[in-house]
Simulated assay, not measured.
Amino acid sequence: MSSPGSHRFIGRLAIEAGMMGTALSDTRIRLLEEIDRRGSISQAAKAVPLSYKAAWDAVDAVNNLAPAPLVVRVTGGRQGGGTQLTEYGRRIVAMYRALEIEYQATLDRLAERLDDIGPVGIREFQTLMHRMSMKTSARNQFTGPITGLRDGGVDYEVRLRLDRDTEIVAVITKESAENLGLAIGKEVCALVKSSSVLLMTDGDLRITARNRLQGEVAAIHAGSVNDEVTLQLLSGRTVTAVVTHGSCEALGLAVGVPASAIFKASSVILATWD
């Protein structure tokens, strides 16, 4: 262990591996543990603590970025339903906690070796790490392998597979594609702002937008002007849109109603981890 008075790095592990992206953090793992313990997302959110909406946002994020759902909604039964951790989710939590122990031990050993640099050097390193930590405001995040690349001269059409039946199409500049090092099979993250997502209940309507994700309404957070509507896709992933309260009523949106999320290829932002 470090000597008294020396600087210590405190580990806050965030998993960035494979299709998980940056979805797993200490707060989200604690939320998953509480869901498993209590069987209720509202009770789990209070225990963390998080707001009810923030807890659902976190659940949607991990389910969207994982190859299989970590959390599922359960309806019926004597308790009237609830929220449960899947067996896959339990394995992910166990792996995270095991990695966390090794991670902190490694940081402690590193701090001992850096002691001879002096406190200024360590503080500068900590400041750099803080500045490099970036979060995105995009509500919708999806990850998957690139299945198609088409050079359009000044831009690239990129196809990203979410699951067996669903792809997302993005159009980015040729320079951006080269900077990201895009290639078939490369794992990327697709970001879509909720304000760029349109909702549609008419399945026969023809549209020019390239992306159309079908599902059903899983949650509606009503506001005085706008409503936040979350659709659950067949794969268990979710997509969220912000629409006016009037539009929500006009479409007859309610939990369980089938709907499609529509967004243009130019509204998709791509990111990589290397």
Results as ranks from 00 to 15, higher is better:
I220V: 15
T240D: 04
E228M: 09
A222Y: 01
I220Y: 03
D227N: 14
A222G: 03
L234G: 09
S224K: 03
L233W: 03
G236Y: 02
L234V: 13
H221C: 11
V225Q: 04
A222K: 13
G223T: 10
E249S: 11
V225N: 04
V239W: 05
L233N: 06
H245K: 13
L231K: 08
T230E: 11
V225F: 08
I220S: 08
G246V: 13
V239N: 05
V243R: 04
V239H: 06
A241I: 03
H245R: 15
L231A: 01
T230M: 07
T244W: 10
E228S: 11
S224Q: 09
I220L: 12
V243F: 08
E228H: 08
T244C: 10
H245Y: 05
A222F: 09
T240Y: 02
V243I: 15
N226P: 02
S235H: 07
H245T: 13
A219F: 04
Q232I: 15
V243E: 05
T244M: 10
C248E: 10
V243K: 07
H221G: 00
L234K: 10
H221K: 06
G236L: 07
G236S: 08
T238Q: 08
A241K: 02
G246A: 14
I220N: 06
A222W: 11
V243T: 12
E249M: 12
R237C: 08
H245N: 12
V242G: 04
C248S: 14
E249K: 13
R237F: 09
L233A: 05
S247G: 14
C248V: 04
A241D: 05
G223F: 07
V242T: 13
L233F: 07
V243D: 07
G223H: 08
T238E: 01
S224P: 01
H221Y: 11
G223C: 10
E228I: 03
E228Q: 12
D227A: 11
A222E: 15
I220A: 04
